[in-house]
């Protein structure tokens, strides 16, 4: 068994060396295809994790009318705290709001010079319990508070998050459509490269068939060739993707200022990388399977 594997390996590498250029072309094409696919995965992954960060900050802000006494605020806080699904409630005074804006503006905080905190409204930040995230619950709470005379306006980020999640979905869909097309291309490329190898080994294959080699014995080196093409292509894609990621990090991170600076740019988790490698191997095997079905039949 071991000696058979060694023999099959030797045949595989001899075949690949014998058709070096088509093999390299196939590997490079597979690598680039998978790179395109995984770049989209990376973008979609980052957008999705950004979305998650924002969803976690899910909250409604009730802006209060001017000139409300602290007692009234206390009263209101107590009332909101008792509402179903509310996790925390925070009072933000005009001074807090001022400090927050200064922080956000960073180097440009001189814009705020001369502005009195008193012109800013005070507000109440309402954060929901995790189980209550979602449109219906927040709307219930919002409509419950709408009649309260001390409240000027209630804002919540739901709409914005929904738009953004559509973008994320779009990126995912593009990823899979593109992925499907590239998948077909990869299988086609592998199967054709193998067809080339097989036809260049035609006499040897015929001699094997005449000698009574089992179909598996004949096919395994071609499966291995497809497997290696897929694996090497996927490795190349993963390597290039990582390089690309580093370039983006170096080039873009310094440009991200203010609140953007807080957004981490992530690389794909290793499970996804493993899945891409596995995908490459499976595609390679599948392509070689197709080629062998077409060209390696025991003739009769």
């Amino acid at each position: 068994m071991l000696s058979f594997l060694g023999y099959a390996m030797r045949r595989t590498f001899r075949n690949m060396r014998g058709n070096l250029f088509p093999n390299l072309t196939a590997i490079a094409t597979i690598g680039i295809s998978l790179l395109i696919f995984s770049s989209f995965s990376l973008i979609a992954f980052n957008l999705a994790s950004l979305l998650k960060v924002w969803e976690e900050k899910f909250e409604a802000i009730a802006y209060l009318k001017r000139g409300i006494s602290l007692d009234e605020v206390e009263e209101l806080l107590k009332r909101i705290r008792q509402l179903d699904g509310v996790e925390t409630v925070n009072y933000i005074s005009p001074f807090d709001a001022m400090a927050f804006m200064e922080e956000r503006l960073g180097g440009q905080k001189n814009l705020l010079e001369g502005i009195q905190p008193a012109i800013l409204p005070s507000s109440i930040e309402i954060r929901l319990k995790k189980d209550y995230w979602g449109r219906t619950k927040i709307e219930e709470i919002v409509s419950g508070l709408e009649g309260v005379p001390q409240i000027e306006e209630i804002q919540y980020g739901q709409e914005w998050i929904e738009t953004f999640s559509v973008i994320v979905k779009l990126a995912r869909v593009t990823q899979w459509i593109l992925g499907g097309l590239l998948l077909a291309a990869i299988i086609f490329i592998i199967s054709n490269t193998l067809q080339l190898t097989i036809s260049s080994r035609k006499e040897e294959i015929e001699a094997m068939q005449m000698s009574g080699a089992s179909p598996a014995f004949i096919q395994i080196p071609y499966y291995m060739e497809g497997f290696f093409q897929g694996l090497l292509g996927a490795c190349m894609a993963a390597g290039l993707l990582f390089l690309l990621y580093q370039v983006v990090l170096v080039a873009i991170t310094p440009l991200m200022k203010g609140w953007l600076a807080g957004i981490p740019i992530l690389f794909l988790p290793w499970e996804t990388i493993a899945r891409i490698l596995l995908g490459g191997m499976v595609l390679g095997l599948f392509g070689s399977f197709l080629a062998s079905m077409r060209f390696l039949r025991y003739g009769r």
Binding site: E203, Q209, M210, G212, P215, Y298
Partner: peptide, 21 residues
């Protein structure tokens, strides 16, 4: 489907079974 089983017990001299150059 077992042509190979059959051929394993045979010696074949035929134009179909060429020498590998």
């Amino acid at each position: 489907k077992k042509i190979h089983r059959l051929r394993r017990t045979m010696g074949i001299i035929s134009p179909d079974f060429k020498l590998l150059e």
